[in-house]
């Protein structure tokens, strides 16, 4: 057998293994979780530590945590991306320093962000275990991803626009708001959706910051349980919670799939739109 055929065989084997693991997981979730999925499951409060009842308050908490994370990280991330791509000379010390720090931050395990969030937001700023603490921690976590993706989107906008706008006596900020940002918009939205996807799948950073409380939150300063934390808790700490954990996991996977599909189709459209 030739080396080529061997390599092809190996690659196919790995591919089959990887996909079958995913399908096994999915089948398992569907078998255990699908019977629990129903209209009321999405709105009812969880009962008996989550063994029965639904995930209504948990969906609300998750949405609020994500909202806090996005509302704070999106403007900050966009501003930083614009600063890096439009107002920093290529190769400058400042730009190199910021980019390097972001790349390091992007590789930091999320549990470290969780501990940092706990120390800084919960204790030092006195926000306690709350949706606010959790959202802000997630914001810190997705910021590097957000900035780097948004920056790439801005750099895809043709340099010709910058030159032509400058040659017409337009200011940099005018070129930015009228030409570059609109051209980069699909990429920016894709970056945002990717960040939401990453934040939505996060558990470790939330366990120590937004906490476990599965009641309907009254305000952002209430503790709230995110979907991922709920799944983790049900499967690790609650005997007999497996069925509801599977159902909640199905909901989470569904949500992430939807978000990812939208992000990818936007990103694809953006690549086609910019030659």
């Amino acid at each position: 057998m030739s080396k080529n055929a061997l390599a092809t065989g190996l690659i196919c084997l790995v591919a089959v293994l990887v996909t079958s693991v995913f399908f096994w997981l999915l089948t398992d979730l569907v078998i255990h979780g699908l019977p629990r999925l129903s209209g009321p499951f999405f709105v009812e409060a969880s009962q008996n530590a989550g063994r029965s009842g639904g995930i209504g308050p948990i969906i609300v908490s998750t949405a609020l945590i994500l909202l806090v994370a996005i509302v704070t990280s999106a403007p900050l991330g966009l501003a930083t991306a614009v600063l890096l791509s439009e107002f920093t000379r290529p190769g400058s010390l400042f730009g190199r320093l910021v980019r390097r720090s972001l790349d390091v931050l992007a590789g930091v395990p999320s549990i470290v962000f969780g501990l940092f969030g706990n120390a800084f937001f919960c204790i030092y700023l006195g926000l306690g275990f709350s949706i606010l603490s959790g959202g802000l921690t997630l914001a810190c976590m997705v910021l590097p991803l957000l900035i780097r993706t948004a920056e790439q989107g801005l750099q895809v906008a043709p340099n010709d626009y910058r030159l032509a706008a400058a040659a017409l006596g337009m200011s940099r900020s005018a070129a930015l708001t009228h030409l570059l940002l609109p051209a980069a918009m699909p990429a920016l939205v894709a970056a945002l959706l990717l960040a939401i996807g990453r934040a939505g799948a996060e558990t470790a950073a939330l366990v120590f910051t937004s906490g476990y409380v599965d009641r309907m939150p009254d305000s952002l300063l209430d503790s709230g349980r995110a979907l991922s934390v709920h799944i983790y808790d049900l499967s690790m700490n609650v005997a007999g919670g497996d069925a509801n954990a599977s159902a909640a996991a199905l909901v989470l996977i569904g949500l992430l799939l939807i978000i990812n599909t939208i992000a990818m189709s936007l990103a694809k459209q953006w690549r086609i739109a910019t030659p």
Binding site: L163, A164, L168
Partner: peptide
């Protein structure tokens, strides 16, 4: 102001991704 007095046309035409009218109006 200088670039308003001294305009430039490039080798490859660079129309902005806007309408014909907006291209002229924007600057």
């Amino acid at each position: 102001a200088l670039r308003r007095d001294i305009g430039m046309i490039f080798q490859k035409p660079v129309p902005f991704p806007l309408s014909i009218r907006r291209n002229i109006e924007l600057p």
